[in-house]
Design a protein around this nucleic acid. Structure first.
Lengths: 209, 209, 209, 209
DNA sequence: CATGAATGAGCATTCATTCAT
DNA sequence: GATGAATGAATGCTCATTCAT
């Protein structure tokens, strides 16, 4: 129950209630998605987690897909600036990778803070792990960044796709495991991923944890 | 339509029918899952792809989840021997990695052969990409294999989990992209993954595609 | 309650039940349409008048529109042969008109027999009073028949449409009133309509009821 | 958008607003009824065609049925004086019929002027074609007028109901078709209906269009 | 065992109506 | 008196599952 419907206090303006309700729905959706997964979630599940009535849902979203997109886009919108900052500040390929993994894992931790403390199982879904236009844009950004170094490193452009895929695969899978550990150690995960991507197992052997 | 039910011709051997129907359902399920995805699939969708009647489904499976598990376990059961062979034949860490990625990508290609030729979109889901007990067993096997080398390479045991995760992340993501390319180039993907895992970008730069 | 669901007697074959259920739905729909009108009717209203379950409706029809069409087409299919017989037997324009009105009013009475005895208000809707392809075909038939005489009577073809409209208007409105009277006097209504159409008020004045 | 609500300009006379809003709702309702039909119309459809808010609707009407009745009654209230004038001026039965049909078809054209120019499909519904007390009053008036001549023409009183029904049936059906023609020829329709009612097909044959 | 129609719970969605502002 | 968001009953429809044949 997260809604604040029917706020009638001194500052309970219409607009505030409306925004609050929207947030209530989003919050409820996040929770339910995390708990039972997107596909299993019904609109009823979402509003049930709320003080609102069934019909009210449709004053804010047209479907659970739309809520999901809103959540995902919101995540993406929050993540992109971080990535941009990383790109702008990075002085070398190594730095870029290091900072990018750091940003992603930090972001992942932040996004799932609620889920982490409550122990919800599906949390990894509520990260950056979806196929939204916004998401694809992010992945393309990463790919373009990597392409630069791919050329520098004399790796044929054709495989920049594979390299991006691998980098993301590492991020995703490692991220899932990182979120399961207590305490959640962003630093360690980022270092691990960076070293692995740059130097492989060979590199990991050289600088043990 | 893959079922053999109601075969009453001269060679309509009754004895086979039962096993054949089970296979018919499994085949139909595989197709539908690949076409529209697991969650969108209904039991009706599956039996419709069959000569069988609705009720017959429940003579073989209790739910679509059970069919899915059966498919997944079947995949796992097919993949495990491959992995074991890889482990037994490998003379070094490098060889193991190389052979394991080769086996996985080959397996992926084989499993999705139908989907590949028909251009179905959800094929990646029908691979080894699920959380089944059988699946976990596979991942644990891999992890144990990697742990050996982790020790050898002087990487702390604590991170063998991360290493496994990363290796699997690379396999999954790279596998998805590999399946999208025409022709599907298993060799290339395996080489790429192996090199990256062993030596990282540094290694890739040394031996371009 | 008109359904015969779950007939399990000695002759209770599947096929029979199925046909019976279809008829049960049609009968129920006819009743409800007659009682509260098409638009006010819901699918639930229809099945409630039945022993069947909600979902069963959709085993037979895709929507209430489809039931309605089935009813209307059925009516049309029953009426057309009558009209054809009329056309074939008629030796003159007068005979055609007389027989056509007679056929229509008889048909109307028959169709609404249930409604007449139960006193339902919307019965006129369940006659031939709808816009179905089948219906239009009937009206076109009538128009073509009338066009023949229109030429014979030296009335410009352009107005055969008006003449048909007028003839039908008389039939409809008179039919409604006929159905309200007790006893329902088909003979009288047919004679009245025929005389009016042929000779107008002038004619009516000459041969009072 | 026909409402004048929220006019706050220099000439925004408050006093008019209330009456104006009522008219705005009526006008909007007329449009929507004409466009999609009464049953398909929702209160929301009506207010959406307005500058007003959803709740405001209920300050003026209790339901769409009430709006509809208001429209119908308004139509009736506009038509009755015409009919009275016809009755008062008519010197003979023929003149009465002629003038009455003329008045009705003219009225029909006027009422549907908007629909005619915009090509809306449901226009015929928005005429005099409903069962309202006001409507019945009109029909009774007509019937009483006709009864006079019925006696004069030596037609038994018992059938004045049928005669009225027939006259109205002709008017309705002919009216529908008249509205479909371009240009809408009121004169012609009135002459046709009059001749038919008075002398029937025999009469039509004598004075072709 | 196979069949396939019946079942009825459950979901998405709409909409008239209310009511705090 | 106007506003427009909230309400929740009502509807169409789907689908897993059962069961008589």
């Amino acid at each position: 129950m997260t809604s604040i419907a029917k706020v009638s206090g001194p500052d309970g303006k219409r607009a505030q209630t409306k925004a609050a309700n929207r947030q209530a729905i989003l919050a409820a959706a996040r929770q339910v998605f995390a708990r039972i997964g997107f596909d299993a979630t019904t609109v009823r599940d979402i509003i049930r987690e709320t003080d609102l009535a069934a019909g009210t849902f449709y004053n804010y979203f047209r479907s659970k897909e739309e809520v999901f997109e809103a959540i995902a886009n919101e995540s993406a919108r929050r993540f992109r600036p971080m990535l941009q900052m990383v790109r702008e500040k990075a002085q070398s390929f190594e730095e870029y990778i290091q900072a990018a993994y750091g940003a992603y894992f930090t972001f992942l931790q932040t996004e799932n803070e609620d889920a982490i403390s409550s122990g919800a199982p599906h949390m990894a879904l509520i990260g950056v792990r979806v196929d939204t236009p916004e998401m694809h844009a992010i992945f393309d950004e990463i790919r373009m960044d990597l392409e630069q170094v791919a050329q520098t490193a004399n790796i044929s452009l054709e495989d920049s796709e594979y390299l991006t895929a691998a980098a993301i695969g590492i991020a995703r899978e490692l991220g899932d495991h990182m979120l399961q550990r207590r305490p959640v150690d962003v630093e360690n995960a980022a270092r691990f991923a960076t070293t692995l991507l740059l130097d492989g197992v060979t590199g990991l052997a050289r600088q043990p944890n």
